[in-house]
């Protein structure tokens, strides 16, 4: 029962690349606010934030290296939240 999974040691270099990616994405999301995207401003911001959080989940939080059960749980929780959000907006968008 106390056997534990083998642990993957992530290289420092990997983390640095991920950080550089995250900083670039932050730069992009700040830069695009200068453009007048109109109604797409929220969408673009959320998509960029989504990519950033995926990077954090996969690398910093080790989902890429761990057993799939953690990733499945994360996806399940996100799915529940997204459906709750959609259903809430079934009310607000059609009032």
């Amino acid at each position: 029962m106390s056997q534990n999974e083998k642990h993957h040691i992530v290289k420092y270099r990997t983390y640095i690349f991920v950080l550089l990616g995250l900083l670039t994405l932050t730069g992009i999301s700040v830069a695009v606010t200068g453009l007048n995207l109109g109604p797409f401003a929220v969408t673009v911001a959320l998509v960029l934030a989504g990519i950033k959080s995926t990077l954090v989940l996969l690398f910093f939080m080790h989902l890429k290296f761990d057993q799939p059960v953690y990733g499945i749980m994360v996806l399940f929780v996100l799915a529940v939240f997204v459906v709750v959000m959609i259903i809430t907006f079934l009310d607000y968008s059609f009032r």
Binding site: V83, V84, I87, L90, D91, Y92, F94
Partner: peptide, 17 residues
């Protein structure tokens, strides 16, 4: 998890909801 609105049928929700 997704059926909560049936407590609110007379609260003024949209018809779609």
């Amino acid at each position: 998890y997704f059926v909560w609105g049936h407590h609110m049928f007379t609260a003024g929700m949209s018809g779609t909801a």
